[in-house]
């Protein structure tokens, strides 16, 4: 089970992250979960083997402030989420403009959940001949 989860909003995110940096927390990664109606971004931190998480719930299409100004290592994972989930980050220290993981002809935001019918169709596609 997930312990130590603090809910944050777009307005309080940066303060919460900035408070952690001097306390010696290390950023592990960001996880984005598509909850159909909205997107959930989890920020995983840890200090001395103790995990702690921030949970940010945003509507699809919201601009999320980038934490790469505080934790510079966040820049690659934020670029990844931008490619795979179509999230928009404000203030990315280094912006690959959606070309970090995916090529120009790749599907847009492929990790987003599709409607069940589409998912089934895609599942069928996966079963096609190699």
């Amino acid at each position: 089970m997930l312990h130590n989860v603090t809910d944050v909003t777009v307005a309080t995110l940066l303060d919460a992250v900035a408070a952690r940096f001097p306390q010696g927390y290390r950023l592990i990664t960001l996880t984005c979960v598509d909850c159909v109606d909205n997107l959930e971004v989890l920020y995983h931190f840890y200090r001395n083997y103790e995990l702690s998480h921030l949970r940010l719930c945003v509507a699809k299409g919201t601009v999320v402030p980038s934490i790469s100004g505080i934790y510079s290592c966040a820049v690659i994972v934020e670029n990844e989420l931008k490619d795979l989930f179509g999230l928009t980050f404000d203030g990315l220290v280094l912006d690959y403009e959606g070309r970090f993981m995916l090529a120009a002809d790749a599907p847009v935001a492929p990790m987003l959940r599709t409607a069940p019918a589409q998912a089934a169709a895609r599942n069928g596609e996966l079963k096609m001949e190699p």
Binding site: I28, T29, T31, V33, V75, I76, V77
Partner: peptide, 24 residues
């Protein structure tokens, strides 16, 4: 990171591998 909803399939599987963390 695993998120399950009580069905056979998982809702989200997230993997952060060590090399990803070592790139910076």
């Amino acid at each position: 990171y695993l998120k399950a909803n009580g069905t056979k399939t998982l809702e989200r599987v997230r993997v952060r591998t060590p090399t990803f963390a070592n790139i910076p």
